[in-house]
Design a protein around this nucleic acid. Sequence first.
RNA 1: CGGGGUGUGGCGCAGUCUGGUAGCGCAUCGGCUUUGGGAGCCGAGGGCCGGAGGUUCGAAUCCUCUCGCCCCGACCA
Length: 577
Amino acid sequence: MRFSVSLIPTLKEAPVEAHTASHRLMLRAGLIRPLGSGIYTWLPLGLKSLRKVEAIVREEMDAAGAQEVLMPAVQPAELWRESGRWDFYGKELLRLIDRHEREFCFGPTHEEVITDLARRELKSYRQLPIHFYQIQTKFRDEIRPRFGIMRGREFLMKDAYSFDMDAAGLDITYRSMYETYGRIFRRCGLRFRPVEADTGSIGGSASHEFHVLASSGEDVIASCSHCDYAANLEKAASGPLAPPTTTPAPQPLLQVATPGKKTIQEVSAFLQVGIERLVKTLVVEGDGQPYLLLVRGDHELNPIKAAAALGVRQLVVPEPGRIAELTGGLPVGFLGPVGTTLPVLADSALEASNAFVCGANTLDHHLTGVTWERDLPRPRFADLRNVVANDPCPRCAAGRLALDRGIEVGHIFKLGDKYSKALGVTVLDQEGKERTPIMGCYGIGVSRIVAAAIEQNHDDNGIIWPVALAPFEVEILLANPNDPLAKETAETLYADLHAKGIGVLLDDRDERLGIKFKDADLLGCPLRVVAGGRALKEGKVEIQVRKGGDPLQAPVGEAVTTLIARLQSLLAAESQG
RNA sequence: CGGGGUGUGGCGCAGUCUGGUAGCGCAUCGGCUUUGGGAGCCGAGGGCCGGAGGUUCGAAUCCUCUCGCCCCGACCA
């Protein structure tokens, strides 16, 4: 591609509203342009990268035996009513009405459509297992789209759905997808980690997320220093904690004045007690019922775990005003479990606590020396909190958990028979009996991968593409278009690389070299070649790896082989995973 | 949805408080010079100041409504 005739609108300054690296750089490098909140046009250069991701995903899915289909983006409401999700999915579902007043939605996902296809076409166990995928534009009406492509409303997704006769069959398919995903992200040159995930509202029995590691990631993932345990924060569990080392001898129960000290920090500082010896009392509403939840002062409530432990469908943390209603007007900031009439559930980390501090249910007072059984009944204990760094690993004795940030780019699920049952998919087994197939579903955020790759690979000057995703592997800078020798060298190199199947961008603009350098850094092609100027006087071109390192010079005649060798070694290094 | 912010040429911004008919840098176009890390000089084009209504002799500026965009938002007891 020739820079001079292409739309590559680079920007010196990014619009103020772009904050994250990938968002800024995608705008500045001219990969995308916004059209509305959370919706973007992919410009030629951005589209090249997007297509590269797509190609990798498609090759690996095909290799794993999945069959590509393309389902409608617009889906009749009727199907979603059958699965029960028309009402359940909420406002993220973009709903449409056609000229006949019939209701549709723009598909955020395609379980209903694929399951409908399955019930029409699958009749016999002989057709199973079978596995379909598509790469398609999805729309989810996010509450708050942000970070550019990373959390847009419209995005490109690979979604796949498998049908097996039984759980054992699904295990095999699931395992194969787990491996396939690893291959895909390795080929993309991304540093990533598969983690155990909560199955959430979709339901099902097992689930893994694949996260690209990046400090700007929206998700927190915990992994063991010792074994291969890794899970997202929603799901991550801790091994049993040792009691706080500062646990004192038994103390009498005392009510102490703590005027105006409402926060854990304030109380801790005021009473000169470590925050791990305080107990936070949280009021929540589970399916309309109030509960008191207790977690240690230095821990955070995990609402998903709490909802599961309480056995409620939906857990709401009420507004302060509502808390007062639920507790009969007790002072927020001084709540405690002693003497409460509400059901109490405590985090397991508190099981070993004693002589702790909590609110006294009296304005401006806390209790100290609180001890289970003596001062209040032992409540039920359960895992209610987010793990913190250094918690013991739940799987192995030796490991400690570390927390990292990640960008979720893939998610695989064992769905079970939720959809196949709801929509009535049946096939005949060997005995001629009707059976409901077991489903799995497997998603990859194709467009998000492009943003995640940039998030993980950039510097102050611009993008540093992994070879596999770069819009072009090589960019040639024609140092001076008016120098016939430089021009001829650049053109020959351009043609030769092209002939070898290497993606190459030729910056043949009538611009100063400085501008071309700046743009080349911004665009981030893995290799940059300067044709002209100093080196060419000695019959050489200058080659620079975007990732860093000293520039090297190669005789013009050897430039192509040198470049190809470089690309291969880069590619090999990047796909180690 | 709640709270906050913001909307002025393609991008970044000033002007708004204190009303008098729009300006700066970058980008764009033309000319001359320059040519290895976002050049210099000269000249030019481009904005119904998000939209609607109102106040006023007069509105980017004041008032009301509305739309877009951005940021924050359970609790941290």
